[in-house]
């Protein structure tokens, strides 16, 4: 690692004041630290968000729940306040030691194309709270590692609406255990259906609109379309584009069946 100054932030204001320029935010650091070890980044300082009190809690609201950006995957997985589908998703991220450290804010800010949380955000129509204001998930994720976060902004929390039904199915990449394909399916009380897919696309997490349309009429695994087009799907040593496209359909069916 190149050296950097370590700054422990105690509030969001504190953190944003310290960010900007070559400073970078660190939350759990489970992705960031390996990146820095490989000398793929050279921040002048790392601003540690893990001690920011206002980002640390899980707050149940009326028909929604807000998870602070510094809440760990483990805490989400144990919470009775978050939708069961989100808790289960959090329980499947990385491994226990990673879940004790990694946070939802870090995951959502990084927007790794194979991360789990972006699919929950998009699949539930979450609101991403940033230090620059609130952004709807549909507007927030803008492609691989690309988000609506502006310079020096951080993710302070995420509000998930409570679904009538929801489920996440993750097909793991056997080495990294990230999602080779992950599908988050939800149906709101008003019948609105979302199907969000992570891991598969070169454009990052996306909504599979054909499946949403089919499921809106009849929320049943039987109506899930066959594999979407493989154009634009990731192809690597763990799976071809066609295989990923195929898995999207299989995982969507399983998610619907499990709802």
């Amino acid at each position: 690692m190149y050296n950097f100054d370590y700054v422990k932030a105690s509030s969001v204001a504190d953190a944003t004041a310290a960010l900007g320029g070559d400073a970078q935010a660190i939350s759990g650091g489970q992705t960031l630290i390996p990146t820095l070890k490989a000398r793929l980044g050279q921040p002048s300082s790392l601003v540690d968000l893990s001690g920011v009190a206002e980002m640390s809690g899980i707050t149940a609201g009326d028909g929604s729940v807000t998870i602070g950006g510094a809440v760990t995957h483990h805490a989400v997985s144990e919470s009775g306040d978050v939708p069961a589908s989100v808790a289960a998703l959090a329980a499947g991220i990385g491994d226990p030691a990673v879940r004790h450290r990694g946070t939802i804010g870090g995951s959502v800010a990084n927007n790794d194309p194979s991360a789990c949380y972006p699919s929950a955000c998009l699949g539930l129509g979450a609101t991403i709270h940033t230090s620059g204001g609130d952004v709807a998930a549909d507007d927030y994720f803008q492609g691989m590692f690309d988000t609506a976060l502006g310079e020096g902004q951080i993710v302070t929390g995420v509000t998930f609406p409570t679904p009538a039904k929801a489920n996440y199915q993750k097909f793991v990449q056997p080495a990294s255990r990230f999602a080779l394909v992950g599908v988050f399916v939800s149906q709101m009380a008003d019948g609105y259906v979302r199907v969000a897919v992570t891991g598969a696309s070169e454009s990052g997490v996306f909504r599979w609109s054909d499946a949403e349309t089919a499921l809106a009429g009849n929320f049943s695994a039987d109506v899930v379309p066959a594999a979407p087009s493989a154009d634009g799907m990731i192809a690597d040593l763990h799976g071809s584009a066609a295989y990923r496209a195929h898995l999207i359909s299989v995982m969507t069916k399983r998610a619907v069946a499990a709802c």
Partner: peptide, 26 residues
């Protein structure tokens, strides 16, 4: 060096964590 192997796991404030994936300062 990618946080996969777990040879470095220690317990921090009651939770297992990967000590190679955590700053001493934190």
């Amino acid at each position: 060096d990618t946080g996969q192997c777990g040879a470095c796991v220690v317990n921090v404030n009651g939770d297992s964590m990967k000590s190679c994936n955590m700053l001493a300062a934190s």
